[in-house]
Measured scan of single mutants.
Amino acid sequence: AQASVVANQLIPINTYLTLVMMRSEVVTPVGIPAEDIPRLVSMQVNRAVPLGTTLMPDMVKGYA
């Protein structure tokens, strides 16, 4: 199964992502692939992302 990117903490709206904020986990539904974690660093979330939430492409500015 493919691992997705999951929030490792509460990520406030407009926060620039860093490695410590994200982890990879096999979840349903599938979100942003874990292999894209390096690409996500320094990208901004466009909403608050609670701890344990799967990151979806529409949550990250400029990802989709």
Results as ranks from 00 to 15, higher is better:
residue 50 P to M: 09
residue 24 S to F: 13
residue 1 A to P: 15
residue 35 E to I: 06
residue 62 G to V: 05
residue 12 P to G: 12
residue 6 V to Y: 02
residue 13 I to W: 10
residue 2 Q to H: 09
residue 46 N to S: 14
residue 18 T to A: 11
residue 5 V to I: 12
residue 12 P to V: 05
residue 60 V to T: 02
residue 34 A to S: 15
residue 56 M to F: 11
residue 14 N to C: 04
residue 33 P to E: 06
residue 59 M to F: 08
residue 43 M to G: 05
residue 37 I to H: 03
residue 41 V to M: 09
residue 46 N to W: 08
residue 45 V to Q: 00
residue 34 A to L: 05
residue 39 R to G: 10
residue 39 R to Y: 15
residue 28 T to Y: 07
residue 24 S to E: 07
residue 57 P to D: 09
residue 50 P to A: 14
residue 32 I to W: 02
residue 27 V to I: 10
residue 64 A to D: 13
residue 3 A to F: 09
residue 2 Q to M: 14
residue 42 S to H: 15
residue 59 M to Q: 07
residue 28 T to C: 05
residue 30 V to C: 04
residue 25 E to T: 06
residue 13 I to E: 15
residue 7 A to S: 14
residue 59 M to Y: 13
residue 53 T to A: 12
residue 14 N to L: 15
residue 7 A to Q: 01
residue 48 A to Y: 14
residue 57 P to I: 07
residue 35 E to T: 09
residue 57 P to L: 05
residue 46 N to V: 10
residue 32 I to A: 03
residue 25 E to A: 09
residue 21 M to G: 02
residue 49 V to Y: 02
residue 40 L to E: 00
residue 18 T to N: 06
residue 57 P to T: 07
residue 10 L to S: 09
residue 42 S to P: 02
residue 7 A to D: 01
residue 3 A to W: 08
residue 48 A to Q: 14
residue 57 P to A: 15
residue 32 I to T: 02
residue 19 L to P: 13
residue 42 S to K: 12
residue 48 A to W: 07
residue 9 Q to N: 10
residue 41 V to H: 07
residue 28 T to P: 02
residue 45 V to M: 08
residue 16 Y to L: 12
residue 43 M to Y: 13
residue 32 I to E: 00
residue 8 N to T: 11
residue 46 N to Q: 15
residue 11 I to S: 02
residue 29 P to E: 09
residue 31 G to Y: 02
residue 62 G to N: 10
residue 32 I to P: 00
residue 17 L to Q: 00
residue 6 V to Q: 05
residue 45 V to E: 00
residue 41 V to W: 04
residue 34 A to M: 07
residue 56 M to D: 11
residue 64 A to E: 09
residue 44 Q to E: 12
residue 33 P to F: 15
residue 20 V to E: 08
residue 17 L to K: 00
residue 48 A to C: 04
residue 41 V to S: 08
residue 34 A to F: 09
residue 4 S to Y: 05
residue 50 P to L: 08
residue 26 V to F: 14
residue 14 N to R: 08
residue 39 R to K: 11
residue 39 R to Q: 11
residue 34 A to K: 10
residue 20 V to H: 15
residue 2 Q to G: 14
residue 2 Q to S: 11
residue 6 V to H: 02
residue 25 E to Q: 10
residue 48 A to N: 10
residue 62 G to F: 09
residue 44 Q to V: 11
residue 25 E to W: 05
residue 17 L to H: 00
residue 55 L to A: 00
residue 14 N to P: 00
residue 33 P to K: 10
residue 63 Y to P: 05
residue 49 V to M: 04
residue 40 L to M: 11
residue 11 I to G: 01
